[in-house]
Computed example of a mutant assay.
Amino acid sequence: MKKAINWKFTIVLLLIGFMIAVQYNTMEHPKERDTRDIWAIRQELAEEKKIHSELLTEIRDLDRTISSYRTLSESSTGQALRDTVDKLHKKAGTTDISGPGFTIEVRPSVESIAYGIPITSISSDLLTRFVNEVNRFKGIHMEIDGKRLTMMSSIRVINGVTTVNGLNVSTPPFTIKIISPTMSDSEKLYNYLLASSIHDDFYLDNLVLEINQPEKDVTVRGYPDKFKNVYLKELPKGE
């Protein structure tokens, strides 16, 4: 009889000990909680919706292109393909383009001139940050000191000098040109850059940004070199 009572007592103690251990482990290692406020979550949701909208727009454009190919006669197919190639060249940045936009003058600060502080080439980190600020807006075409910025462009330091596409960026002053899809987009980007903290970063490097008012007709140059075709191959005629 006493053995049975001892076994029951032992089992109860084991159960109590197991429950205490589980509770202690839960208190020591709680599940991670999302501590962001509602506005941070709403902002992330808005960004995801924007990306979703852009993807839908691209899909609709591709669907329209496919539909146009299907409805064209054989004599018109060649022209349609040429139009598509021209559109891709424009999107890749290999052609000159004009549209609504504005220019920015990168100049030495007044204080650096007054105190005779020597101005060197703009740092690659600062120029990259500026490009990232502008690229918050979609459909942007940019030219930095006469050098077209594309998806294949690189900003790096070569022999102590900042370069774009392997070409030296002039010691300030130099000009940056930006084109947006519409005049309204240019005005939004213009106002955004006016209020951006990027001005403080330039000022720390003894530089200032003089942002000119948006204009209806700004021209940026095309990327001068041809892109190398690595993956696509032309099929023989008749295949």
Rank of each mutant, 00 (worst) to 15 (best):
Y24W: 10
Q43N: 12
V230I: 11
T182W: 05
V12L: 08
R82T: 12
K90S: 07
A4F: 10
P173W: 02
G160I: 04
L204A: 06
V134D: 01
L88R: 10
G78A: 11
I97K: 03
L235E: 12
E48F: 08
T71N: 15
N159E: 14
I16S: 14
L194V: 05
T175L: 07
R64T: 05
L62F: 09
I211Q: 02
G166W: 02
L167V: 06
E44F: 05
E28Q: 15
W7T: 07
P118Q: 12
L45I: 15
E133F: 01
V22L: 13
L207M: 03
T10R: 14
I20F: 11
T219P: 04
T57Q: 06
H141D: 09
I198N: 03
G93E: 01
N212P: 09
F202Q: 03
S186G: 02
Y231L: 09
I140E: 02
D96M: 02
A114V: 15
G139V: 06
G78Y: 12
T219A: 10
E74Y: 12
H141M: 09
M27Q: 15
K90T: 06
H52F: 07
Q79G: 09
K90V: 02
S196A: 06
Y223R: 04
T77I: 13
G17H: 04
I178G: 00
A40V: 08
S73E: 14
V220G: 00
S184C: 05
A80L: 10
F227W: 11
R156F: 09
S123L: 01
L193D: 00
S53T: 12
R64F: 04
M183K: 07
N229E: 13
I59S: 05
K216T: 11
Y69T: 08
I16Y: 11
K138E: 14
N206Q: 03
P236W: 05
S112L: 03
I11Y: 06
T57V: 08
F18Q: 10
T71Q: 14
I158H: 08
A21C: 09
E74S: 14
R70G: 08
I117G: 01
I211A: 02
A40W: 08
A80R: 07
L127V: 01
N229K: 08
S67K: 07
M151L: 12
K177P: 02
M183L: 10
I41Y: 06
S153A: 03
G160K: 02
H29I: 13
A21G: 07
G101C: 06
R148W: 05
T120S: 14
S53Y: 09
P172D: 04
K8E: 05
L45V: 09
I117F: 10
T71S: 15
P172T: 04
N229F: 07
V85T: 09
N229D: 10
D201C: 01
T94Q: 12
V164R: 00
A92F: 07
P172K: 01
R136H: 06
M152S: 13
E105W: 10
I66G: 03
E187L: 08
K188M: 06
G93L: 01
P236E: 15
G139T: 04
H141L: 13
L62V: 06
V220L: 07
L81E: 13
E234Q: 14
P214N: 04
M1N: 08
V12D: 04
E32P: 13
E133N: 04
T120Q: 11
I158V: 13
